[in-house]
């Protein structure tokens, strides 16, 4: 197990990142809460000796993505309607950009790469290692995601 003070530091520093990533992947506040808890518990129990802060961050992102995949594959998981999600999001972010809503309205295949690329600042190669897909696949998903956003933008704003 991790040392308590190391664990508390990591939990305080990365809880938001884990939650944001889980929210993008699952589009559910409750699931993002569960995933955040699950990932932090795994971190505590892992006993891993991280080489650097980047190593720890990468590990947390990988574990979060894996935990989210498991949830997405669960046969009993019920997808929350987008309208319900946006209603709950309004409590947390009453004023937000239209692009944020547009990203969250995309299929999950595109949301996570866009988040990792545009917010976390990972390269396409790094995202490929996180998602366990070829770099070219990441580039394609980013391209298609942006294209969908552009189409939506044109539709709404001409």
């Amino acid at each position: 197990m991790m040392r308590e003070d190391d664990f508390v530091r990591a939990a305080e520093q990365y809880r938001n990142m884990i939650w944001r990533l889980a929210l993008h992947a699952l589009r559910s506040h409750a699931d993002a809460d569960d995933i955040t808890q699950e990932v932090l518990l795994r971190l505590y129990r892992s006993g891993k000796d991280f080489e650097s802060e980047d190593h720890l961050r990468f590990w947390l992102v990988r574990v979060t993505v894996n935990c989210c995949k498991k949830v997405l594959l669960s046969p009993w998981r019920k997808m929350e309607p987008l309208e319900d999600f946006q209603e709950k999001l309004s409590v947390l972010l009453p004023e937000r950009s239209a692009l944020f809503d547009a990203v969250m309205a995309l299929p999950d295949l595109y949301r996570v790469p866009l988040y990792l690329y545009y917010y976390e600042g990972y390269s396409t190669e790094e995202i490929g290692r996180i998602l366990r897909v070829p770099r070219a696949t990441v580039a394609t998903r980013l391209h298609r995601g942006r294209a969908l956003l552009r189409d939506q933008w044109k539709e709404e704003f001409g």
């Binding site: 809460d33 950009s97 692009l99």
Partner: peptide, 22 residues
């Protein structure tokens, strides 16, 4: 809505930064 290729991503990042669990 800002064009997603321009300053829109700045606004998106600002929104993401405000997200946090309970």
């Amino acid at each position: 809505m800002n064009h997603p290729c321009e300053s829109g991503w700045e606004a998106y990042r600002a929104d993401c930064a405000r997200l946090h669990p309970s």
